[in-house]
């Protein structure tokens, strides 16, 4: 009886633990699009789609495909956001349009780094 009770306690604890661990990485699998400093969209990275946004420099098209994200179309002066190309983790920024696309939780890059100095 004591073994079963122990098993039950540990089972509840482990299920709770899974939710604690998920909460620890709230953005780990998503694509978050901030517009003008506020979160506007949150998409799963594993569903292909295109998202059309509008900013001070007109239409922007964000494409999510095969667990990667890119700014497919924009009309800002330097098109740095479009030139960034496909990313699977990190951030694409269009400063003129005040759009920040965060993929997989932000700046963490290859080799498990917490940030990149560039």
């Amino acid at each position: 009886m004591a073994d079963r009770l122990l098993f039950l306690v540990l089972l509840i604890g482990s299920v709770a633990g899974i939710f604690i661990a998920r909460d620890a990485l709230p953005q780990a699998t998503g694509v978050v699009i901030d517009v003008a400093g506020k979160p506007a969209y949150n998409f799963p990275i594993d569903v292909n789609r295109t998202v059309t946004l509008h900013g001070p420099y007109g239409k922007m098209v964000v494409e999510i495909r095969d667990r990667k994200v890119r700014m497919k179309e924009a009309h800002c002066p330097n098109l740095l956001c479009v030139k960034e190309g496909w990313i699977s983790k990190g951030v694409i920024v269009c400063l003129p349009n005040k759009v920040v696309i965060t993929v997989g939780g932000g700046t963490a890059g290859p080799k498990g780094v917490d940030a990149i100095t560039r």
Binding site: A16, I18, Q27, K98
Partner: peptide, 18 residues
């Protein structure tokens, strides 16, 4: 125990903004 490691000393939260 693994869950406690990630949550016991706090969890990591990250946000970006222009």
């Amino acid at each position: 125990l693994l869950s406690s490691c990630s949550g016991g000393n706090g969890s990591v939260y990250r946000q970006s903004k222009a």
